[in-house]
Design a protein around this nucleic acid. Sequence first.
DNA 1: GACCGGATTATG
DNA 2: ATAATCCGGTCA
Length: 185
Amino acid sequence: MKGAARLPRNFYAQDARVVARGLIGARLHRVFPDGREAVGRIVETEAYLGPRDLASHARHGRTARTEVMFGPPGYAYLFLIYGMYWCLNVVTERKGVAHAVLIRAIEPLSGIEGRTDGPGKLCRALSLDRAFNGADLRGPTLFLTKGKPPARVAVSRRIGVDYARHWARRLLRFTEAGNPHVSRS
DNA sequence: GACCGGATTATG
DNA sequence: ATAATCCGGTCA
């Protein structure tokens, strides 16, 4: 298969719900320092809708931690959870609007060792950590391309955000229905 | 400066 | 069911 083109900046410059749905089936590429490339197909995402979204890290406004989310679309926002695991997010919407999409699971296609059915697991498998916070998602070592479209997309509540009151009930999680690499929960 | 709790995972 | 482990947010 030929090397597909990186997803364009204007794709990321949309509402996080649109991007989260659109990323199901897309390919996530990671080129390691030694030149090896890992590729996975995104099968689970969640949309986070900025300061008004009580489940978003942006709920307390613009801080050093959330700065990247308020920046231009098409960049990576990584954060550490429970002191142990990194999670990869895609910044969406125009500059100043802190929308983001959490990549929760990918289906390994090539060059991947270890499980990728969870946000912490996939970051570990792809060696993604704080060094990638703010990284261009159209760059040389981390980028996304178009992939095989999902047969069917299921929509559900986001995972682990019960503290977010009514926002916890919003249907902002997207999965490829029936894909075995979707995280359990 | 101290305390709290989490967009998780592995293990029992 | 619970431990591992650390940082940002919050309040003093």
